[in-house]
Write a protein that binds this DNA or RNA. Structure first.
Length: 783
DNA sequence: GTTGATAATCTTTTT
DNA sequence: GATTATCAAC
């Protein structure tokens, strides 16, 4: 009893691990809910003797799935056999492929991502001759997705919208919806929603199939239940109907995916569907300090629509929440850098225990620039993802064509990459011929010779491409995924064209292609699968390559959405400006604003020990005009007493002064902000936090701030150091760019921005305080 | 018919 | 700041 719970020391968690039957766990942030799930799995296997293959654990991201698998493996080293831990989408894809093969149908469907969906709608609009400006594809896609989440097909949607006569938009949407479904069918493709919907339809219409899966998955666990949509709810309901051993874990305060169809009804319907369900509330937080938690509680109390919950913790007060009002995004980024440097110096903080969170991906750019200039290693999660780069998408498109010659969207992408002399007109001819003859587009290419109006070099190139794809398709059973990557890169002339460019950018792309090859090889090693279906599925469903390098000490940058489920010792939450966070698009509607607030709640509760907030106050619009923004209302919703305003970045952690002395300078700065917000320098914590009992919930370790100084990374010394001064015309050496000449200096001292001309590389803008510049003097100083 | 260049247009969040 | 619509030149 309780064997697995020693580290949590919470009796009510036993209800989660040992519980029978339907189990609804309402768990607050940092209450160890994911750990409770893994312990439940361990308990089932070790003490109940449940064979691992009877367990299905559904997580929200692939990353979470990987982590859960690792944790279970650590708890049950003797594990024999596989536990199915996966996201909803990959679970469904696997089920659909398996059932398609069993039923003798094609299991090789493609999975269309958002970009593919948009391309499909664009094509439909152009056929219908509707202007994209008047009929934005995104609007249709959103409506279609909503309908699918509600398990409505195109025909039902049309019937429903026909009932509301005169509804212009609904009727247009119905038309696009129908054409969209036909186009996907023609392409032998499913979108993200289809994966769920088709699986639910399969289960609900084929009881025999469902019964097989019910028998296989006797214990079902679902994490982040508050983010499930209706289709996911139906899926779980169907699967769990057999053995009713369903354990769902969720927190309504962390529901941040309403835009994607997440539906709070699911938690309510859970108690309705399973009247015998045991409900467990986990309200003790094991993650954060009291300060962090109070801030989070105070914020989320401003939401009306929530179940009452009050998180508490035995952890100590901890450090105050830092707040910095920046002048620009660059200044904000510099604040992050210098604060990190100070932290490292004072506490030996590790970079990988810190994260910078922001509302939108676009906010990462200035951060990256400054971090690069400072030489601080970081890891960007999400953003311009690996699989979204052009060269990767191109090669993937070739691969998809090999696997599925009907994939017009992919062919449209690469038919003229590299240049084959194909423009819109030729493409239309290929499409038309393909449709008329009922031949998949890729196979049509082989017959390009018969196409009227296509001749000469263009014709030859098309035939060659068609034959290449056909040849590779013959090899689907024999070649490994990485072989296809290589074959496509070389034989389609793709790498050749890149090499011919001879630019730095092309070099990067070639490197990325090598990386893709490596990933394919890794996939093959892990699964032993030949062919492409599995690899392409992984590519489509995996948001991000698992560059989960725990070994490297790097700062993490990501959106708040991506951060859900993670925790960091130190969290910077940047861009707390009205219009950014909360986002402008949410300001009109109360429900949307509450979701933004929950999002902010999620961000705050990622922090274990230290939370640093900042706002910018102005933003550059696209035409270069600065636009003033008010500080986020969320700042006003935090208890002022918990905040400590940081005037200069170095003031954090003392920076040479008395650490207990409140800093007041910035409180009144900036347009009308100080008074309105009511920030008072009321901070009375000692930031050195000496010997507060339980202040640091780190088991066995020394308290953070009074720990002996650890070796300081080179960059921290650099940032903290006084450094040199520079003058225009001076020669300097950069570790990466080599020698160059300073052509312009803006600002003074460590904050100066240097423009340096590097021969062959052009002009680079560097920050004096961060760039690892050496002066190139007479003695050649290599020191 | 295709290509290159210039002009215009928005910016959430993700499987 | 990056992607897309439009237009003039090969």
């Amino acid at each position: 009893m309780g064997t697995y719970l020693e580290d949590l020391n919470a009796p009510q968690l036993e209800a989660v691990t040992h519980g029978d039957g339907p189990l609804l766990v309402l768990a607050g942030a940092g209450s160890g809910k994911t750990r409770a799930l893994t312990h439940r799995i361990a308990y089932l296997i070790k003490e109940r003797g449940v064979p691992p293959w009877h367990i299905l654990a559904i997580t929200f991201t692939n990353k979470a799935a990987g982590e859960m698998r690792e944790r279970v493996a650590a708890l049950v080293p003797e594990l024999s056999g596989d536990i199915w831990v996966a996201t909803f989408h990959s679970t469904c894809a696997r089920i659909l492929r398996r059932e398609a093969s069993l039923a003798g149908r094609r299991p090789d469907f493609a999975i269309f991502d958002t970009a593919d969906q948009r391309a499909v709608v664009r094509r439909i609009l152009s056929v219908l001759r509707w202007e994209q400006k008047k009929f934005p594809p995104a609007a249709f896609l959103a409506a279609i997705s909503t309908a699918k989440n509600e398990m409505l097909g195109a025909e039902e949607f049309a019937a429903r919208s026909g009932g509301q006569r005169g509804d212009f938009w609904a009727q247009r949407t119905a038309r696009v919806f129908r054409a969209y479904e036909e186009e996907l069918e023609r392409n032998n493709a499913l979108d993200f929603d289809d994966l769920l919907v088709r699986t639910v339809n399969l289960f609900e219409s084929h009881p025999d199939v469902l019964a097989r899966y019910q028998d296989r998955f006797r214990y079902i666990l679902v994490d982040e239940y508050q983010d499930t949509n209706h289709a996911q709810y139906r899926l779980v309901r169907a699967l769990a109907a057999g053995h009713r051993n369903l354990c769902v874990v969720g927190d309504d305060d962390q529901s941040i995916y309403a835009f994607r169809g997440a539906d709070p009804r699911n938690i309510l319907e859970f108690e309705r569907d399973y009247p015998e369900a045991v409900v467990v509330k986990l309200e003790q937080n094991y993650r954060s300090t009291t300060t962090v938690l109070e801030a989070a509680n105070s914020l989320v109390r401003h939401n009306d629509r929530r179940k009452h919950k009050h998180l508490w913790t035995e952890n100590g007060i901890g450090e105050p929440i830092g707040f910095y009002q920046a002048e620009s995004q660059k200044d904000e980024a510099a604040f992050v850098c210098r604060t990190l440097a100070a932290l490292m110096r004072e506490t030996g903080e590790l970079l990988r225990r810190a994260a910078v969170l922001y509302r939108t991906n676009a906010q990462s750019r200035p951060l990256e620039e400054v971090l690069n200039a400072a030489g601080i290693p970081y890891q960007l999660v999400g953003g311009v993802r690996f699989y979204e780069r052009k060269e990767i998408k191109d090669v993937i498109a070739y691969l998809r064509l090999v696997a599925n010659p009907a994939d017009t969207i992919s062919l449209e992408r690469v038919i003229n990459v590299p240049r084959r002399g194909v423009g819109p007109v030729t493409w239309e001819r290929v499409l038309k011929a393909s449709a008329e003859e009922g031949v998949p587009v890729a196979e049509m290419l082989c017959r390009a010779g018969a196409l009227s109006g296509v001749a000469g070099k263009t014709r030859d190139e098309l035939v060659r491409l068609g034959e290449l794809l056909a040849e590779l398709r013959q090899e689907l059973k024999h070649l490994r995924p990485q072989d296809f990557v290589r074959a496509v890169c070389q034989r389609a002339g793709y790498t050749e064209a890149l090499r011919a460019e001879r630019t730095g950018e092309a070099e990067d792309r070639l490197e990325n292609l090598d990386e893709l090859h490596r990933l394919a090889a890794e996939y093959h090693r892990a699964t032993g699968e030949a062919g492409l279906a599995g690899f392409l599925e992984q590519v489509a469903l995996m948001g991000d390559i698992d560059e989960y390098d725990e070994g490297k000490d790097r700062l993490t940058l990501m959106t708040v959405h991506s951060a859900k489920g993670l925790e960091f010792d130190t969290v910077f939450l940047v861009g707390l400006d009205e219009g950014v966070f909360p986002h402008v698009r949410s300001l009109g509607e109360a429900g949307a604003l509450e979701e933004e607030r929950r999002l902010c709640y999620v961000a705050i509760t990622r922090a274990r020990r230290r939370l640093l907030l900042s706002c910018v106050g102005r933003r550059m619009t696209y035409d270069g005009q600065p636009e003033l923004m008010a500080p986020s209302r969320f700042l006003r919703e935090l208890p002022p007493g918990l905040l400590r305003v940081i005037a200069r970045p170095a003031d954090w952690l003392g920076g040479g002064g008395d650490p207990a002395r409140p800093v007041t300078v910035a409180a009144g700065a900036g347009g009308g902000w100080g008074a309105g917000v009511g920030l008072k320098p009321a901070f009375t914590h000692r930031s050195a936090g000496a010997a507060q009992p339980g202040a640091v919930p780190k088991p066995g370790g020394p308290s953070k701030l009074d720990a002996a100084p650890k070796p300081i990374a080179a960059w921290a010394l650099r940032v903290a150091g006084d450094g040199d001064t520079y003058s225009e015309g001076e020669r300097v050496r950069h570790p990466k760019f080599g020698e160059g000449t300073i052509v312009r200096i803006l600002g003074t001292g460590q904050d100066a921005e240097l423009t340096v001309a590097f021969p062959g590389l052009g002009l680079k803008r560097l920050l004096a305080g961060y760039a690892r510049l050496e002066k190139v003097s007479a003695d050649g100083g290599d020191g």
